[in-house]
Amino acid sequence: MGEVKTIRHDWRDILRAFKMAFDPKKMFLGYSALLASLFWCTIVVALFSALKLISTTPCIFIRLVLCSAREGVPVIAGNVSQAIMPLDFGELFALSILIFGILAIWSLAGGAITRISAVDYAKDESICLIDALKFSRKKFWSYFWSPLVPVIGVFFFALCNVIGGLLGRIPVFGEILVALGFPFALISGFLMVFIGLIGALGLCFMFPTISAEGSDAFDAMSRAYSYVISRPKQFILYCIINTLYGLICLIFIACIAWLVVRLSFYTIGIGMGQKFGLIQSFLSQKCNIACLGFCNVPSPQPLVSTASLTWSLKFLAGMLIVYIVLIKLTVWTFVLTYLFSAKTIIYFLLRKDIDSTDISDVYIEEEKTERSNAEVKTFPSSGEGNKDNSSPDKESRL
């Protein structure tokens, strides 16, 4: 007999996200999307850096992967802030291309992950990877535009204020016009804050809305705003539970990954001897095996240059770095699949409380129904066949 899942329809269901995140289909989608995102970021930054449009180099992404999160995240955040603060056209254009590409990747992968989560939580059923990808491909533009709708709204009202400021350059008349119309600028400022802030808070509900309802970007945006405004206390409570539980899970998974790598290094080092100790010293200069940076105990290591290693030792060191990176990406893939799964559960819980919609209510495509109807029309039942055969006799009697 299969395992019977207990769904309580309250905050305790969020704890199921840990197990749901380890679904092989979700891990595959998240891992592929994470690799594609890193590849896309590296290519775009390398291209615009070669064109001298930006000063940032792809090394920041390599360092983000090789170092721990405690070391790499502040570095990339600083580089991004330095890139966008001058508001240079070339840097903003490069940043836009970067964001659109990442959004396209995660519109396909994130849509499929939330679709799997929605059907799993609502119907206690597992859909195949191909069906999830087909669904996200059909709803691709809904997934793609839903996070951008609040951004477009903010830019629209900002553009209205800019146009008003341009009118203010007209001598005398423009100044009077701005003075009289400044209350409208304040209203635009309020709408920018409202749309931006609530949109950022409700951003997590947009993908689950499309996956659960089969709707469009406008419905995803309206539900995201409605759920945050209608139940702010409940929304904040669910987010706190999700964040605290997610941090505990992340620390646990990161420690397990570090322990696996550490024990593997230790046991191999016992057999390989001094040569492996030389490689370990070299690796400690290039990367941090801990995902979060809190597991490694800093110890003085002798500096090892690349020239002192033979080609075979260089090959071994390079392969070990690749393995460490793959393990780190696995940990961060879990983080992403957990977030998508947890936010999907929170969406269903808020929908039940606000819209009084049953948890098991989820959009199911009508392809199977249409296919079965087509089969019925193609292969009529025996009763229908007898009816057709008997009709000539009836006509002859008449």
Rank of each mutant, 00 (worst) to 15 (best):
K25L: 10
S81L: 15
F48D: 10
G277F: 03
F61E: 07
S341P: 08
K368S: 08
A69W: 09
T306G: 04
V73M: 15
A200E: 11
T57A: 08
D88R: 12
L326V: 04
W106K: 06
I113C: 02
G277H: 09
A46S: 14
A104T: 00
Y245V: 13
G165F: 06
K377L: 14
P147I: 04
L159F: 14
D13F: 02
I187Y: 10
E91H: 08
D393S: 03
L15Y: 05
G246H: 04
L309M: 14
C249Q: 07
R169M: 12
G246M: 09
K5P: 00
F276G: 02
V331G: 04
A200P: 01
G269T: 12
D361N: 08
G271L: 14
G101R: 15
P208W: 07
L186G: 06
K387G: 11
L29Q: 05
L159P: 00
G90K: 09
Y238M: 15
D88V: 01
S372P: 00
V261C: 05
F218E: 06
G271V: 13
A254L: 06
L159C: 04
L38V: 09
Y238G: 14
I176Q: 13
E91P: 03
D361Y: 03
R397E: 10
F294W: 12
I324H: 02
D358E: 15
S215R: 07
A109M: 07
D358I: 07
F18C: 06
F182G: 01
I240K: 09
G165I: 02
T333M: 00
E71F: 00
S37Q: 14
I240Y: 09
S126Q: 12
E366R: 01
C59H: 13
D23K: 02
G189D: 15
P392V: 06
S81K: 15
V154P: 00
E125I: 04
A112F: 05
F156G: 03
S188V: 07
W11I: 10
L47E: 09
D88E: 14
A33K: 12
R351H: 08
T344L: 01
D358Q: 14
S32L: 12
C128P: 00
F144D: 08
F182K: 08
K26H: 11
T330E: 03
C204G: 06
M192N: 01
T267F: 13
I102T: 14
E125T: 07
S360A: 12
A69T: 07
T344G: 01
S299Q: 07
V44H: 02
I210E: 04
S49T: 09
I256R: 10
P298C: 05
D120G: 01
K394Y: 09
W311C: 11
I229C: 05
L15R: 00
D361Q: 06
I256H: 11
I354N: 13
L98W: 15
K394I: 12
S381M: 02
E365R: 05
K26G: 15
G269F: 03
A122G: 00
K328A: 09
W141V: 08
P147G: 06
G383L: 09
E91Q: 14
R12Y: 03
